[in-house]
């Protein structure tokens, strides 16, 4: 009886957005009279950071400080349509809509500023600190607040923009399956080290090392949270979780977290990840989406590492101690 170490790999890609497209998202951006901006959406923040990412995209596109942008979402009376937060689509679809809306609002902002400064709007830029200035002549500038005041109370102009993003729906050829599932894919490769106890059948994940290609990391902190959280979920899927432990038999279905097992903090391993950015041609600043793919590669990588460790391949998820011991028994029996 011994503990055996093994190493396994998996490399995957992930389609961004709903399969076959046809899943629109909209955004509205407007300035308040004091030059603050509100992004209005109906996209859902599940904890993944939808509000934060769209806020950054709006601030970047408008050229204003991030503190001057607020994202308001989740009210069907005010928020324009968004298909929803799923299919790794939020950043890509809603993000594009926000960028488009912010661009349109920025155009109005610059038009009003140009009238106030009596220059051509094409000669203007935002300094990222809340001012509109003439390119090459930074002394000739107006604060965004002053521009918004002028727009509201002097010129009667709405500094606002509408954005919509839609990947046109694709047909499917029923015979060949010819279709355009999505427009861009994210990528990953993961290497996992495990230790398998051949007496108890328990698997411990010792380390995860991975590379993720995600187009553009819009917020590196959120990226890290998703990828590490996803690694945890992948370990959980691989080794612990199911609501039907003897599928397809329906017996022994858990109804609470005493029966439905998931890894605790002590089961989590160090995760080391490096990011690659190959921008999506149609992504907001090249961004793709990482919401879903990060939970996937640990599963096959752990299966492969188990085989490397003890010479048996487990082909049914989750890889419970029971399955591992039975597989070892079968191997010893020469089956």
């Amino acid at each position: 009886m011994a503990k055996h170490r093994g190493r396994g790999v998996a490399s995957v890609n992930y389609p961004i957005g709903m399969n076959l497209g046809g899943d629109p998202s909209q955004a509205l951006v407007h300035a308040t009279p004091t030059g603050k901006f509100v992004v209005t959406l109906s996209s859902i923040d599940l904890g993944q950071g939808m509000k934060s990412v769209t806020r950054q995209l709006a601030a970047e596109t408008l050229g204003v400080p991030i503190e001057d942008v607020h994202v308001d979402t989740g009210d069907s009376d005010t928020g324009p349509h968004c298909m929803g937060s799923f299919a790794s689509r939020g950043t890509h679809r809603a993000g594009n809509a926000v960028v488009a809306a912010a661009r349109e609002a920025k155009e109005v902002l610059l038009e009003v500023a140009a009238e106030e400064l009596e220059v051509d709007p094409r000669d203007l830029e935002l300094d990222g600190r809340g001012n509109v200035r003439v390119k090459g002549a930074p002394a000739r500038a107006l604060s965004v607040r002053d521009v918004a005041q002028a727009a509201h109370f002097k010129r009667g102009k709405s500094i606002s923009g509408r954005g919509m993003f839609l990947v046109p729906p694709s047909d499917v050829d029923p015979d060949t399956g010819a279709m355009r599932p999505v427009t861009t894919y994210a990528h990953a490769c993961m290497i996992v080290d495990v230790e398998v106890d051949d007496e108890t059948g328990e698997v411990r994940v010792l380390s995860i090392k991975a590379a993720y290609e995600i187009g553009r990391a819009l917020n590196i902190g959120l990226v890290e949270q998703q990828l590490v959280g996803g690694a945890w979920m992948g370990i959980s899927h691989a080794l612990f979780e199911t609501v039907e432990p003897y599928y397809p038999d329906r017996a022994h279905g858990p109804t609470d977290f005493n029966g439905y097992l998931m890894p605790g903090p002590g089961d989590m391993c160090p995760v080391e990840i490096e990011i690659i950015e190959r921008p999506a041609l149609d992504g907001p600043y090249g961004a793709k989406g990482i919401g879903e793919m990060c939970a996937t590669p640990p599963i096959p990588a752990i299966a492969n590492a188990i085989e490397d460790a003890i010479g048996v391949r487990i082909t049914e998820m989750p890889f419970t101690p029971e399955k591992i011991l039975r597989a070892l028994d079968a191997k010893r029996a020469g089956r």
Binding site: Q56, H70, A211, R216, N219, V223, E274, I275, P279
Partner: peptide, 27 residues
């Protein structure tokens, strides 16, 4: 977490002010 900026560098502008930064979440 490290970004391997040298890969696909020719396909990207890295001149963004707010995108890419670990900005604190609004919520």
């Amino acid at each position: 977490m490290r970004i391997r900026k040298e890969l696909f560098a020719d396909e990207r502008d890295d001149d963004l002010a707010i995108v890419g930064k670990p900005v604190r979440r609004q919520d």
